[in-house]
Design a protein around this nucleic acid. Structure first.
Lengths: 139, 139
DNA sequence: GAGACATAGGTGATGTTATTACATTCGTCA
DNA sequence: TGACGAATGTAATAACATCACCTATGTCTC
């Protein structure tokens, strides 16, 4: 798989990118593109495309992850760091909706190995685990 | 994570389920719900809901998998077997669109372990690997 | 067979997510 | 200043998915 994301600080974001970034930052749960749009109408954003463009850039910088199974987006937990790993996996609680990012190097290795075994050139992986978080099992 | 899918033979499918099943069977690549609808209009299917309902059942039986990152569907490679594993992972070639199902028990174990380590009760996992298949790397 | 129940199907409308096309503005650098 | 690439603004539309409501079919029991 490819390397890590380097040196794309939250500083030098454009206006729209910063708006989307901070909206995600303020949310416990993943947000959909249209959730973000609704949240940012007061800041002058009017069209889905504005959101999607900002998200694309943020994802490209490794600051945001897309959750394929939710069609939603979360901040990378490493977004304040210089170098961000690109091997994220996620747990998604089907009860409370909270998402946790895991970065496990043995998982990354195993996926790389599985791909290699079939001659597949791995570029990107999506790992999303559904179930109940500890808190929701207790409840 | 949960067990396997048992004894849901392609025999006892309803008419719509069988139509969708055979349409997927005849396709090299994953098909979207609306692809299926277009393919099956000649057989009397007219609405997306008919497709989605059939897909839901087929997925429930373990005969079909949904690819979250493509919003598309493929047959399970074990669909002719008595017992189907529920630990599928997929490679998705970004060049030719072909999808390959992998069933690796060490991956399943590792995911279970990762989940357990954080107290997460794993119910279902989505693993989708993007890159180039062997054929497309050669080309 | 009649009644009750569960599962499946048919249809139209609607909701949600994502992209296309095209024009404009901004930032940087020669 | 002028040129270029990146970012933005806007409307329209495409692609994916579900809701609400009603009808049909199969099965089990009496």
């Amino acid at each position: 798989m490819s390397g890590e994301h380097r040196h794309a600080e939250p500083d030098k974001l454009t206006k729209n990118q910063a708006l989307v970034f901070h909206a995600l930052e303020g949310s416990e749960k993943p947000l959909g593109a249209y959730d973000l749009l609704d949240a940012l109408r007061g800041d002058g954003l009017r069209s889905p495309l504005q959101i999607y463009r900002a998200l694309d850039k943020l994802i490209g910088m490794g600051l945001v992850h897309r959750l394929e199974s939710l069609n939603a987006f979360v901040l990378c937990i490493h977004c304040g760091e210089e170098v961000r790993p690109d091997n994220a996996a996620f747990t998604i609680c089907t009860a409370c909706g909270r998402v946790t990012e895991l970065n496990d190097s043995s998982l990354a290795r195993l996926l790389a190995q599985l791909a290699e075994a079939t001659g597949f050139a791995l570029e990107q992986s999506t790992v999303e685990l559904r179930g109940l978080c500890a808190a929701c099992q207790a409840a």
